[in-house]
Design a protein around this nucleic acid. Structure first.
Length: 831
DNA sequence: CTGCTCTTA
C-alpha cells in the first residue's frame, strides 16, 4: 500500500516553455481550463508539443502537490523518452520527473510528474482502485484507441464522481475529439495546431486497364510501389529520404529485392543519376541492430521499406517522400471460431493521413498513394478501436476482480458486441476462472493476479498440481514474449541450422525449454552481456527478447511467491519434473513430457486438432488447421496436436505446436465434453443395459464406441430395454422364481392354445411388457436393481411382496422372499 | 511452405 504522499513544498520557480511549440501560445487558456474543469480534451497534431508541455502546465496549475501527475503513453520507449525530455526542460526542477514502465521504476519520493505506459496505470488500478496516488491523469495519444486506453477511459469515467478532486486530461490527434467530449459529459476541447510542413498528396492508382496478371494474382502493389519510388528518384523532386509502407514482411523482402535490381539495371535509363541508394527493410521482428540502421547517416539517399511500425511506433528521421500502399495487416478476433484473423486490409483515412504526415516533419513532403482519391474517400474514417476486435477474456477477468460491474453497462466509448462479451465469459468458464454465477473461483483469483493471458495463467495453475511448475513457468513466459528467433531473408538457411540446435522433435514448447537451458547455462556461468550478445547474434536470437523472457519469468515467480504464503516459495522452486541425471538435451524432458504438456493443454483446449492429412488437421468447431511451416512440428506431427495460437492469414495456421494424447482430453475438459449414446442393448453377462458412448470436444470425437452402463444415464429408457429383453424375452440371466413361473405359465398357455386350436388365450408380448411396466418400480433398470427390489421384499415392513407383484397371475407369489431362487452365485438371499 | 503492432499486476 502506498504511504501518505509527502507534500513537497518548493519555492515557485520559473517554468520555461519552448517558444517554437504551438501549444506554448495556448498556455494560459489550458491552465485556466485545468483549474475550471474536471475533464479536459486537448487536440493537437504532431509537433504541437502536447506530450511534453501539458504536464508542465499541470505543475504550474498547482497539480501534483499532494498526489502525482500521472502521464500515460502507449509505448515504453515513448514513456521513457518523453520523461527524459521533460526532465531536461525543467532544469533544476528536473528531479520532479520520474517514469515507470514494466521492469523499470524510476520514480521516487520527489516525483511529481510520473510518466508511464497506459498498461502500468491499468495494472496499478488493481492495487489502488480509486487511483488515489494521482490528483491529475493525462491519457496521451487517446486517438490510438488501444485496448488499454479504452479500458482506462471507462475506468476514469466511473471514477470521476467518486474522486471530485481528480482531474483528467485526454489528449489526442485532432480527430474524433467530439467522441471523447461526448463520452465525458461534453468536456471542453482545446485545439492546438501542429507544427508540420505541407504534404502534397499524389494519387497513383493502379491502372484499371492494365492487364491482370495470372489468375488469382494480387494487385501487384510491390511492383507499383517500386515504380513510384523510381519515378520520384528520377523526377525533378530532388533528394531526400523515402519511406514505403507495405503490409507484410514478405512484401518488404520482395520490394527491397526488386528495388535493388531496378536501380542497378534501369537506374541510368530512368534518369537516376545519383549513386545507388541505401534500401533498408524495417519491421518489428527485425533485430535491434538492423532496426537501428535507419538512424545512421550514410551520405546516400535512404529508402526505408516498412510495415506499420513506421506509422506510429518508430519515427524514421528525415523523410521527405512517402509511398503508401494503403494496406496493413490488421488483427481481429473471430468470436465464432475463437481465432485471430490477420488479413491484409485497406487502412482507414486517419491511418492514410498519419502515414502521409510522416514526410512533413523536416520540410515540405510528397506522399504518393497507390490508390485513387475515390478509394481514399470511400474508406472508413477511423480504424476500428481495438476493444471491438479483441478477445475479451482478460478484460472481463480484470473487471470481475475489480468489481467493475457488468461489462455490458461499463462506459466504454465503443462498447464491444454482446456476443464478444459472452465469448469472453465462455472462455473464462472453460478455464475454470469463474463459476456459473460468474464469480471468481479460487483459480480465477490466482489468474487475475498474474500479469499474463488467462489461458497462460491456467497452464501455470495446472502445472502446480502436476509438479512441473519450473518447466511450465519457463514456457508460460516464452508464450508471453514475441518469438525470440530471428530469421533474416538472406540468411534463412543458416538461421534454421542455428535454431535446430535447440529444436525438439516432439514439441515446440520443449524447444523453448531447450533454448532456455542453453541460455541459462551461459547466464549462470556469469558470461558478460557482450558475450551473451555474441551468442544471440551467432544463433540468430534476439538478445532483447531473451532478456524480456527472463524478466517475465522472474516476475511470474515473484507473483506466485506472494500469492501463496511464504513457505510455498520453496515448494514451487523444487517442483520440477526434470530427471537430474538426464543430460542429453532432447531426452531431458522425456520422462515428464506428459505432465508438462497436459498442463499446457489445460489452457489450449480450444486449439486441438486431429490429423486429416500431412500438416492438415481437423480443429474444433469445424475449423481446418494447418501447422505453420516455421514450427518444429511441420511434417512431423502425429495424430493429435494442440497449438498455443491459431491465426488466420492465408490459411488458418497453428503456431507453437506439440503432440498430445487423446486420452488426456476428457479428464482435462470435463464438463466441456459432449456425450451421446447409441445402440443401447441388454447384456445378459453383466446384467445391465449397455450403450456405446461417443464423447466429443468442440465437435471432435475424442472417444468413440465406449461401452457404458446406460441405466444410470437414462434410467427410463434403460428400464424399457431391461423389461423387454430381460423380463419379456427372458434373457435376464440368473435365477428368478417369478420369471420361471411366468415362463412356465406362458408355455402352458401356448400348449393349451395348440390343443384347443385357439389363438386368443395367450396375451401378446406387448401386454406382458405393459404388465411389467406397471408393476416394476421406476428405479429398476438392471439385474442388480431387480435383486435389490426382491430382497426388499424380505422386509416385514414391506406391504406388498414385490415378487408377487411381478407374477403374471394373481397370487403367483409364494410367500415373502420367494421371488429369489436360493441357487445361483453371488445373489443375495433372504434369511 | 510462412504472421501487423503494442502492453501488464
Amino acid at each position: 500500500m502506498r504511504h501518505e504522499p509527502i507534500a513537497i513544498r518548493h519555492e515557485p520557480r520559473e517554468i520555461n516553455y519552448p517558444e517554437v511549440l504551438p501549444i506554448t501560445a495556448e498556455k494560459e487558456r489550458i491552465i485556466a481550463a485545468i483549474r475550471d474543469h474536471q475533464v479536459l480534451i486537448i487536440a493537437g497534431d504532431t509537433g504541437s508539443g502536447k506530450s511534453t508541455q501539458i504536464p508542465k502546465m499541470c505543475l504550474e496549475a498547482n497539480r501534483g502537490e499532494k498526489r502525482l501527475i500521472g502521464c500515460t503513453q502507449p509505448r515504453r520507449l515513448a514513456a521513457t523518452s518523453v520523461a527524459a525530455r521533460v526532465r531536461e526542460e525543467l532544469g533544476e526542477l528536473g528531479h520532479l520527473v520520474g517514469y515507470k514502465i514494466r521492469f523499470s521504476n524510476q520514480t521516487g519520493p520527489a516525483t511529481r510528474i510520473k510518466f508511464m505506459t497506459d498498461g502500468i496505470l491499468l495494472a496499478e488500478t488493481q492495487q489502488d482502485q480509486s487511483l488515489r496516488a494521482y490528483d491529475t491523469i493525462i491519457i496521451d495519444e487517446a486517438h490510438e484507441r488501444s485496448l488499454n486506453i479504452d479500458f482506462l477511459l471507462g475506468i476514469l469515467k466511473k471514477l470521476l464522481k467518486k474522486r471530485p478532486d481528480l482531474k483528467v486530461i485526454i489528449t489526442s490527434a485532432t480527430i474524433d475529439t467530439e467522441k471523447f467530449s461526448r463520452a465525458f459529459d461534453l468536456a471542453p476541447v482545446i485545439t492546438v495546431s501542429g507544427r508540420t510542413y505541407p504534404v502534397e498528396i499524389r494519387y497513383r492508382a493502379a491502372d484499371d486497364t492494365r492487364e491482370e496478371g495470372a489468375a488469382g494474382q494480387d494487385a501487384g502493389y510491390v511492383e507499383q510501389a517500386v515504380e513510384a519510388v523510381l519515378e520520384l528518384c528520377g523526377g525533378a523532386e530532388g533528394g531526400g529520404d523515402m519511406l514505403v509502407f507495405m503490409p507484410t514482411e514478405r512484401d518488404i523482402r520482395d520490394t527491397v529485392e526488386l528495388l535493388g535490381k531496378r536501380f542497378r539495371h534501369d537506374g541510368p535509363r530512368l534518369g537516376i543519376k545519383e549513386r545507388e541508394p541505401e534500401i533498408l527493410p524495417l519491421f518489428g521482428r527485425l533485430s535491434g541492430t538492423d532496426q537501428n540502421r535507419i538512424f545512421r547517416k550514410s551520405g546516400v539517399r535512404k529508402i526505408v521499406v516498412s510495415t506499420n511500425v513506421a506509422e506510429t511506433s518508430i519515427t524514421v528521421p528525415g523523410i521527405r517522400y512517402v509511398v503508401d500502399t494503403g494496406l496493413a495487416r490488421i488483427s481481429s478476433y473471430n468470436v465464432r471460431a475463437g481465432t485471430t484473423k490477420l488479413p491484409v486490409t485497406a487502412i482507414s483515412r486517419a491511418s492514410c493521413d498519419q502515414r502521409a504526415g510522416r514526410c512533413g516533419r523536416v520540410g515540405p513532403g510528397i506522399c504518393v498513394r497507390l490508390y485513387s482519391e475515390e478509394d481514399y474517400l470511400g474508406r472508413p474514417e477511423y480504424t476500428l478501436p481495438e476493444i471491438v476486435r479483441s478477445n475479451l477474456a482478460e478484460v472481463i477477468l480484470f473487471m470481475i476482480a475489480l468489481r467493475l460491474g457488468n461489462p455490458k453497462k461499463f462506459p466504454f466509448i465503443d462498447p464491444p458486441a454482446p456476443r464478444a462479451v459472452q465469448d469472453g465469459y465462455n472462455l473464462l468458464a472453460e478455464l475454470g476462472a469463474i463459476d456459473p454465477e460468474r464469480r471468481l473461483t479460487e483459480r480465477g483469483r490466482i489468474m487475475a493476479a498474474l500479469p499474463l493471458d488467462p489461458r497462460i495463467s491456467r497452464m501455470i495453475i495446472c502445472a502446480r498440481e502436476n509438479g512441473c511448475l519450473r518447466e511450465v513457468v519457463i514456457i508460460a513466459a516464452a508464450l508471453s514474449i514475441q518469438d525470440p528467433r530471428i530469421r533474416p531473408a538472406d540468411n534463412a538457411r543458416q538461421a534454421d541450422t542455428a535454431h535446430a540446435r535447440f529444436r525438439s522433435e516432439r514439441s515446440d514448447f520443449l524447444s523453448y525449454l531447450h533454448l532456455w537451458d542453453l541460455y541459462d547455462d551461459l547466464v549462470h556461468q556469469k558470461k558478460s552481456a557482450s558475450a551473451l550478445g555474441r551468442f544471440c547474434k551467432s544463433n540468430f536470437l534476439s538478445y532483447q527478447r531473451l532478456r524480456e523472457w527472463r524478466d517475465i519469468h522472474e516476475q511470474i515467480w515473484a507473483q506466485l511467491a506472494t500469492s501463496g504464503n511464504g513457505r510455498e516459495h520453496h515448494f514451487f522452486l523444487r517442483s520440477s519434473c526434470l530427471a537430474e541425471l538426464e543430460t542429453e538435451p532432447d531426452k531431458r524432458y522425456d520422462s515428464c513430457y506428459d505432465r508438462i504438456h497436459q498442463s499446457i493443454l489445460s489452457g489450449n483446449l480450444r486449439n486441438i486438432g486431429l490429423k486429416k492429412e500431412k500438416n492438415v488437421y481437423q480443429g474444433g468447431q469445424g475449423k481446418e488447421l494447418m501447422i505453420f511451416p516455421g514450427s518444429g512440428q511441420f511434417n512431423r506431427a502425429g495424430q493429435w496436436i494442440m497449438a498455443a495460437e491459431l491465426v488466420e492469414t492465408s490459411r488458418l495456421y497453428a503456431r507453437t505446436v506439440a503432440g498430445i494424447r487423446v486420452e488426456w482430453l476428457e479428464p482435462l475438459a470435463g464438463p466441456l465434453c459432449r456425450r451421446s449414446y447409441s445402440a443401447p442393448h441388454w447384456e445378459k453377462r453383466s446384467g445391465q443395459v449397455v450403450a456405446l458412448e461417443k464423447v466429443t470436444l468442440f465437435g471432435l470425437v475424442i472417444v468413440a464406441g465406449r461401452r457404458v452402463n446406460f441405466g444410470p444415464l437414462k434410467p427410463a429408457e434403460a428400464r424399457q430395454i431391461f423389461i423387454q429383453a430381460a423380463l419379456v424375452e427372458g434373457e435376464c440371466g440368473g435365477h428368478f422364481a417369478f420369471l420361471d413361473k411366468n415362463r412356465q405359465l406362458i408355455t402352458d398357455l401356448a400348449d393349451l392354445e395348440d390343443r384347443l386350436r385357439r389363438r386368443d388365450i395367450l396375451v401378446d408380448e406387448m401386454l406382458i411388457h405393459e404388465f411389467y411396466d406397471t408393476r416394476l418400480p421406476a428405479e429398476v433398470h438392471d439385474r442388480a436393481g431387480l435383486i435389490r427390489l426382491l430382497k426388499s421384499g424380505c422386509n416385514p415392513m414391506q406391504r406388498a411382496d414385490p415378487a408377487a407383484q411381478l407374477c403374471l397371475y394373481p397370487g403367483g407369489g409364494e410367500g415373502r422372499g420367494d421371488g429369489l431362487d436360493s441357487g445361483g452365485s453371488g445373489r443375495p438371499r433372504c434369511r
